[in-house]
């Protein structure tokens, strides 16, 4: 393996493996997000579990390393490619149809994905995982993920802007994955004349499902679909059948209905 990671193919393998790892993470993240559509309290349990859990913190470190490898090599490879191309440009180049837009613009798309990530980090990771670890106080509890989602995409004065930013982010991700998915398999040699069209087809479906899934959760939240009220914890005294009427999570001490309860 001496010199493998210095070779062009070796560097591409790093790109491919880190990319596939990030894809797995996306899949996991999407599953987590979809929970909020069904139940805000179940989602918050997932948040509570992943926030306070040191395995999750370790997982985050591994994930960060994956991103780092992918991003560092993205810039190294792109810089080398520009040098290899040389400074001379064709007066005009009209390629026949068949070259995917994404395949020629992976760095630009990656940078957009990266910018989206930074916004996302500021909004959620800093307010949830980091806040919990650092013990800082926020507008909502770090484990109340559903409330955070509802705030950013529905209640915040900037909600519409956030929704647009997120949808642009997912569009860039869609393009990046559309090419990246099959390209990653090709790079590690797992492709041939039969599988190239199959992988391209799977890539289309896969990136569409992933990105449409993420977009759905955002739009669902923007439409006010997230129920931030918790289940009633004071059923004997309070009139609420299932849902707590209080703004904050259900608390028997401050329940305004406690006295009138039947």
């Amino acid at each position: 393996m001496k010199g493998f990671f210095k070779s062009s193919i070796g560097k591409k393998v790093l790109m491919s493996v880190s990319g596939l790892f990030l894809i797995l993470f996306l899949l996991f993240h999407l599953c987590m997000n979809l929970v909020v559509v069904f139940s805000a309290s179940a989602y918050n349990e997932v948040c509570a579990f992943l926030g306070s859990n040191w395995y999750a913190v370790a997982g985050t470190m591994v994930l960060a390393a994956g991103f780092l490898v992918h991003i560092v090599y993205a810039f190294i490879l792109t810089a080398q490619n520009r040098k290899a191309r040389g400074t001379d440009r064709y007066d005009n180049q009209n390629l026949p149809a068949g070259v995917e837009f994404a395949s020629k613009n992976m760095l630009v798309l990656g940078v957009i994905v990266c910018c989206g990530l930074l916004v996302h980090f500021g909004q959620f990771w800093a307010k949830m995982m980091y806040a919990e670890l650092a013990g800082t106080e926020g507008q909502f509890a770090p484990t109340d993920g559903a409330a955070w989602i509802n705030w950013y995409f529905h209640d915040s004065p900037l909600a519409v802007a956030f929704v647009i930013v997120y949808l642009v982010w997912f569009a860039a991700l869609w393009l990046h994955l559309n090419h990246g998915f099959w390209s990653a398999f090709h790079t590690v040699g797992l492709s041939n004349n039969v599988w190239i069209p199959r992988l391209k087809c799977i890539a289309k479906w896969f990136s569409t499902i992933i990105c449409a899934g993420f977009a759905f959760v955002v739009i669902f939240a923007a439409c006010g679909g997230i129920n931030t009220k918790s289940d009633c914890c004071n059923k004997e005294k309070c009139g609420a059948k299932t849902e707590c009427h209080q703004e904050a999570p259900c608390n028997p001490q401050t329940c305004p209905n406690a006295e009138q309860g039947k």
């Binding site: 062009s8 193919i9 560097k11 591409k12 393998v13 490879l77 080398q80 490619n81 040098k83 290899a84 191309r85 390629l95 026949p96 068949g98 070259v99 995917e100 395949s103 020629k104 992976m106 090419h179 099959w182 390209s183 090709h186 790079t187 590690v188 040699g189 797992l190 492709s191 041939n192 004349n193 190239i196």
Partner: peptide, 28 residues
């Protein structure tokens, strides 16, 4: 020479229609 990003432009312009599936074999 640069690093292949699997754009596939080469196989479209190759006068001998050499397929990029050979690139997968080279990687392998």
């Amino acid at each position: 020479f640069g690093n292949c990003t699997n754009t596939g432009a080469c196989e479209l312009e190759c006068p001998k229609s050499v397929s990029i599936s050979h690139i997968a074999r080279l990687n392998r």
